[in-house]
Lab assay of single mutants.
Amino acid sequence: LRLEVKLGQGCFGEVWMGTWNGTTRVAIKTLKPGTMSPEAFLQEAQVMKKLRHEKLVQLYAVVSEEPIYIVTEYMSKGSLLDFLKGETGKYLRLPQLVDMAAQIASGMAYVERMNYVHRDLRAANILVGENLVCKVADFGLARLIEDNEYTARQGAKFPIKWTAPEAALYGRFTIKSDVWSFGILLTELTTKGRVPYPGMVNREVLDQVERGYRMPCPPECPESLHDLMCQCWRKEPEERPTFEYLQAFL
């Protein structure tokens, strides 16, 4: 395994491009020591290896001592969030954005069929390849993070704006909380990567959403798509659509 080009840095580690087995181009995620327990990670990795779908980033291998390494397929255009905010983002029109959403829903419909939960679905965790191919990455890892700023769910590192209220408040993460996050991801797509709930801080978002506030229809977004977002944001988790439905609708 060779680490060649550093692609990015996040709160919990770095991402590199490299070569595996001398020939395969891969992405390598390294986790800061202390982010998660190697034992817990190894268990999760076994499950992650079983998830194989064309719209999920394929896991190739893991190094399960500290520092933990995760070796996955390489996606040339990086994260969907950076892609939307970058040069190419300007030229993306609604049909392409909807197609990308459908690809993500397709990957998540598979996660749904496998009775698995992602827990951290957002544009930053979707990767883009050639020809606007989108794949879901980092599934299941969020559960293992041991950082206090994260586990408190009120901490600075927790993605509260993407998280369903029952998950943020009571830790009830299910495929239905993933559906909520998918609704937020749809706003990221239609606004080219704007942060959700602009002008609001995490605490406010939690309070307002509890009181029934939902983001309005983004500019140039059809009402039918906003309606779909609002279905994803129904207060009762069981009233939210399935990913199978979302995939078919898109």
Rank of each mutant, 00 (worst) to 15 (best):
C11K: 03
K77V: 10
V5A: 15
G107F: 01
K32T: 04
G78K: 10
Y110F: 08
I175M: 14
R2P: 07
L225K: 04
M229V: 09
C11L: 04
I126L: 04
E146L: 08
P38L: 07
A168I: 06
G22L: 11
K49F: 02
R214A: 05
T23Y: 14
D138E: 00
P241I: 13
P159Y: 00
E130H: 15
V15G: 04
W162Q: 02
I145V: 10
L7E: 09
G171A: 06
L127T: 06
R153T: 09
Y170K: 09
T30P: 00
A152I: 04
F249M: 07
I70L: 08
T174L: 15
A142R: 00
T30V: 04
V117S: 03
L94H: 05
G129R: 13
V5I: 12
R153L: 05
R153D: 06
Y213W: 07
K176H: 11
L80V: 13
T19V: 13
F83E: 07
I160G: 03
G8M: 02
K29Q: 02
K55V: 07
S181D: 01
P218W: 06
D99Y: 15
L189V: 08
A156N: 05
G129I: 06
I68M: 09
P38Q: 14
S79C: 09
G78C: 08
E44G: 00
R203C: 11
L228A: 08
E66P: 13
F41G: 04
Q247I: 15
T30A: 05
D82C: 09
L42T: 03
L127D: 00
E44Y: 00
E244D: 11
L51R: 00
D82L: 07
P33L: 11
R211Y: 14
S181E: 03
F173S: 07
S64P: 04
I160L: 08
V195P: 13
N125G: 00
Q208A: 12
P196G: 02
F158R: 01
E239D: 05
Y116A: 13
Y60F: 12
L31M: 07
I28R: 03
E130P: 14
K235G: 13
N115D: 05
R25K: 13
N148T: 09
A124I: 05
W162V: 01
M17F: 14
F83Y: 09
P165M: 14
L56F: 04
W180V: 00
E87D: 09
P222R: 08
L42N: 04
R234L: 11
E87C: 11
S79H: 04
M75P: 00
G78S: 10
R119L: 02
P33I: 10
E239Q: 13
P159H: 00
N125I: 02
V111T: 06
V136H: 02
V5R: 15
G212P: 02
S76R: 15
K161G: 00
Q247P: 15
N202A: 05
A101Q: 06
C217T: 13
L56M: 10
Q103S: 10
V201M: 09
E244I: 14
R203E: 04
P222E: 04
G193S: 06
A142Y: 00
I104S: 07
L94I: 07
P38H: 14
D99T: 14
R211M: 12
M75L: 05
Q231N: 02
F249L: 10
Y213I: 06
P38S: 15
F83T: 11
V47T: 11
K85Y: 13
A101Y: 00
P237I: 14
L42D: 04
